[in-house]
Design a protein around this nucleic acid. Structure first.
Length: 894
DNA sequence: CGGGGTACTTAGAACTTTCCAT
DNA sequence: ATGGAAAGTTCTAAGTACCCCG
């Protein structure tokens, strides 16, 4: 450890210097070229499949073997064995909860499994075979890895001694196996087919047919997404431990910061006040910006509240909608200049009209048929509706997945009449194509509607939005985020979700709980219906809630991000991150010390924290098994990392490869300090692939510790902090003084991109990317030509003027000069655009911009460099970040 | 503690509107 | 005008965190 440690120690703790920095920095220079080190050798295209495959395979991979044997035995006698093992486990490891979970599931699964097995004849040998197959597929992309894994598997299987964790392993593995098993079978079926054929064949055939029946819509609803969906985009970040350290420059600015804050733009703050009572806002208000005071809006003026109007850049809408809009836009509630209530209450007055329900089902016209086994069948309304959900997705990859189809079919049958149920027993005999064609046709018709019709619809929507999309909270009218209740449909989980395809039921008023203040009028339920409950809980921010049937989780109607309630919380989040900034050195120092702690749990905690800090990993809560198998830091398993004493010339490299939130793959090769490396070796000792890497740690233990370190500190604060500080540093580094706006924006986007890479925010390469790049290139070429022409013209003009010296030629010369410059600028702009786009093709900037970057950093940067804020934030974003735009001056420092 | 539930944030895909070159 | 791509918006799944109970 000394090697790596020594250098970094001390003040420059882990410094984490994410190398991305460096890599990202470089990236810009070389343009699209290796994408900031994001390439990892896995093929680009297949990535998509990789995602899902990855999980199944990888995850289960190792356990499969080992566990398989056991599993079987266990399955049969699972109860006894599992119970005993679990008790053991507890002694040895603290992750018993996890185990328990698994046990439960396992038992259920086992049951199912045993059935499955018989059906699919998944004997262990089969499994092996399957695995191999999978592996070989995979190996195309992942050779090295696979190889390693297989080794592991073998090893582990042979070394099935009893380790502390063995029992645990067993349990888990059996579960996993089960799962794996299932998945595997699914996959296999489908995957073999799917992978190859399905994408083409089925689709194509269908498509063709559809065409016959109905003209193909100009725009498909993207049904095709599936094919190449999103690839996994691995991110590779390299870092050298040595250089780390740059970190902390931030602190320097702390002092300044304070000053700024105080000074900022908040000139007068007369804050104080808390919101008092409710009041309704009056409607009215005239056009934008009047300085007049509007007391009407705010009644609670008890304290000296100050309200200010801010002008919005929006265009006016003299047109029709009227006052409401203007009112909203014209008046801004500067809540950030007020005091916040310190008790847990979220509001004193809340009034709204309840949610908007999905439109009732409209039966299909008679002409749209459904065939079962070649014969036309007239479905009952409920069965038809659900069939329609499936028909709409016919071209989606989902319909090629076994799990999806099974879940769908099972739930569909529940909607059938006994007769239908008796008749329809095999999904593959169902012909949804006419239905699909019908929906497609409808969608085309919608697109082809005349302007007037579209306008009318738009107006109706605005009407609804005005009525149901806003609420009155503490005297202010504010937008609601999701006032429309989710319509029924088929559940679309991300990744290999075990529940994909299940029917998401229609929500009725009887399912909905309303939350509003006692003194507000109660929302009126739709005629003939009543609410499940009306309550008045001002310690929460939701207006309506209901429980969704697929996963049994609660859903809420809440306010828009531009609202005070959301904004305040958002600002607070960044303030906590800034606070962390002030303590980060100490915290880093401390966890580095803890790497040598004698207690294993402390060492695990410190290593996990190091990952979270340095790599911006998510906390990694435990998950149920009826969800896709994804992990975060605390839930990493042995199979998710590989240790290399040396890799590519670097010592002590940890290779992370796992599926994170939304089943997005995280791949990273990270050189770490020797001490970390040794600890990891220890943590992995005597464990199987499916075991928890940090078996004595979970998110609540970690967060508890973090909270002791700093008030309000949790694992996710590190993501926010590291994202924001990275943006600030990158901006500082990449911004060239005096650059023009397009250049500035390239710098900004690059800084933003560094953050997105850090946080692993990926997106699938837009389907249109290659083409659009081509177009752009063509444009650039054309522009180059234009520049040359302009140059030529300029030269001629010069000559002419030189000769004649006439005023007229002088004017002409100037003109040519200008034209030339203009062309040149345009060319430059195009080139920048091309670079930017290429660099960005598989990175999503939006998520970090919206959720991780302190908007004041961006605002300050814009102000300092004279970049219009609209270049960085669109309208919605400006609404959300109004507080930052208003309060941050050019000197703001995070 | 574990286990379950609640509330709220974060996330990429899907869909819609706007923009821009022909 | 048109149609295709980009930009913007909507949707809702999937996380985190925390609380309460036994």
């Amino acid at each position: 450890m000394e090697n790596s440690d020594s250098g970094l120690d001390g003040a420059s703790p882990p410094q984490v210097k994410r190398e991305h920095f460096s890599s990202s920095e470089e990236a810009p220079t070389n343009g699209s070229g290796g994408m900031n080190g994001m390439t990892n050798g896995h093929g680009g295209e297949k990535e998509r499949s990789h995602k899902s495959e990855h999980r199944d395979k990888d995850k289960h991979r190792s356990d499969k073997h080992k566990d398989k044997h056991r599993e079987k035995d266990r399955d049969r006698s699972k109860h006894s064995s599992s119970s005993s093992s679990s008790s053991k486990d507890k002694h040895h490891s603290s992750s018993s909860s996890k185990d328990k979970h698994r046990d439960k599931e396992r038992s259920e699964k086992d049951k199912e499994r045993s059935k499955d097995k018989e059906k699919h004849s998944s004997s262990s040998s089969d499994k092996h075979r399957d695995k191999d197959k999978e592996r070989s597929d995979k190996s195309k992309h992942h050779d090295g890895k696979d190889r390693d894994k297989s080794k592991h598997e073998h090893k582990s299987s042979s070394s099935s001694k009893e380790h502390k964790s063995s029992s645990k392993d067993k349990e888990r593995s059996s579960k996993e196996k089960d799962r794996e098993h299932k998945e595997r079978s699914k996959d296999k079926h489908s995957s073999e087919k799917k992978n190859k054929d399905h994408e083409k064949e089925p689709k194509h055939t269908e498509k063709v047919k559809i065409k016959e029946e109905v003209p193909e819509p100009a725009v498909f609803n993207d049904p095709f997404e599936d094919t190449p969906k999103k690839p996994v985009k691995p991110v590779k970040q390299e870092m050298e431990s040595e250089d780390e350290d740059k970190p902390l420059m931030e602190r320097a600015s702390q002092k300044k910061r304070k000053a700024e804050i105080a000074g900022d733009e908040s000139e007068e703050d007369i804050p104080l006040m808390q919101r008092k009572k409710p009041k309704k806002e009056k409607e009215n208000k005239k056009r934008i910006k009047e300085e007049s005071e509007e007391e009407e809006d705010f009644k609670p003026a008890k304290k000296a509240k100050k309200k200010t109007k801010v002008e919005d850049k929006k265009q006016e809408s003299p047109t029709k909608r009227g006052k409401k809009k203007e009112e909203e836009e014209g008046t801004v509630w500067k809540w950030w200049e007020e005091d916040k209530p310190s008790d847990g209450t979220k509001w004193n007055y809340l009034e709204h009209k309840g949610p908007v329900f999905a439109p009732a089902y409209e039966p299909l016209p008679d002409g749209v048929k459904f065939y079962y086994n070649g014969k036309q069948v007239r479905l009952s309304e409920p069965a038809e509706e659900v069939a329609g959900f499936y028909a709409k997705m016919l071209e989606h990859e989902f319909t090629t997945k076994k799990t999806f189809n099974e879940n769908f079919f099972k739930d569909w049958r529940k909607q059938m009449t006994p007769k239908e149920k008796e008749l329809i027993t095999d999904l593959s005999l169902c012909d949804f194509k006419p239905m699909h064609a019908y929906f497609q046709q409808k969608s085309e018709e919608r697109k082809a509607m005349s302007k007037e019709e579209k306008l009318k619809i738009k107006q109706e929507n605005e009407q609804i939005q005005a009525e149901y999309g806003t609420c009155v909270i503490d005297g202010h009218k504010e937008k609601i985020g999701n006032y429309k209740i989710e319509p029924p449909g088929l559940f679309r989980g991300r990744g290999e979700h075990p529940k994909m395809g299940k029917l998401k039921a229609r929500i009725m008023p009887e399912d909905v709980i309303i939350n509003c203040s006692k003194d507000a009028p109660k929302p009126v339920p739709p005629p003939g219906h009543r609410w499940k409950e009306v309550r008045h809980d001002n310690t929460v921010t939701w207006l309506c809630s209901w429980t969704e049937n697929v996963q049994g989780q609660g859903k809420y109607v809440m306010l828009n991000p531009s609202s005070k309630l959301k904004g305040e919380k958002d600002m607070q989040k960044y303030e906590t991150a800034r606070k962390l900034h002030r303590r980060i050195d100490k915290i880093r120092e401390e966890y580095r010390q803890d790497w040598k702690h004698k207690e294993m749990r402390i060492r695990q905690r410190s290593v996990a924290l190091y990952f979270i800090d340095r790599l911006a990993l998510r906390a990694g809560n435990e998950k149920d098994e009826d969800q896709a198998d994804t992990v975060g830091c605390c839930s990493l398993r042995v199979e998710h990392i590989q240790l290399h004493e040396e890799k590519d010339g670097k010592p002590f490299v940890v290779v992370f490869d796992f599926l994170g939130k939304d089943s997005i793959r995280y791949y990273n090769e990270v050189p770490v300090e020797k001490r970390v490396f040794k600890n990891l070796q220890l943590f992995m000792e005597n464990k199987n692939e499916g075991d928890d890497l940090f078996d004595r740690l979970n998110t609540s233990i970690l967060n508890k510790h973090l909270n002791d370190l700093m008030d309000g500190l949790t694992a996710k604060v590190f993501r926010t902090y590291n994202a924001s500080i990275t943006l600030q540093r990158q901006l500082e580094e990449l911004t060239v003084e005096g650059a023009n706006v397009p250049e500035m924006m390239l710098s900004y986007n690059r800084a933003n991109r560094a953050v997105a890479i850090l946080c692993n925010h990926q997106r699938s390469v837009p389907k249109t990317h290659a083409k659009s790049m081509e177009n752009l290139k063509a444009k650039i070429d054309a522009k180059k030509q234009a520049v040359e022409d302009a140059e030529e013209a300029l030269r001629d003009a010069k000559k002419e003027y030189k000769r004649s010296k006439s005023e007229k030629d002088k004017i002409n010369l100037d003109k040519k000069k200008k034209a030339f410059e203009r062309q040149q600028q345009q060319l430059e702009k195009l080139e920048l655009q091309a670079t930017d786009r290429e660099e960005n093709k598989e990175i999503a900037l939006g998520t970090s911009k919206l959720n991780y970057l302190d908007p004041r950093i961006s605002v300050a940067w814009c102000k300092k460099n004279n970049v219009p804020i609209e270049k960085v934030y669109n309208k919605t974003q400006r609404d959300k970040f109004r507080w930052a735009i208003d309060m941050a001056g050019p000197e703001f420092i995070f």
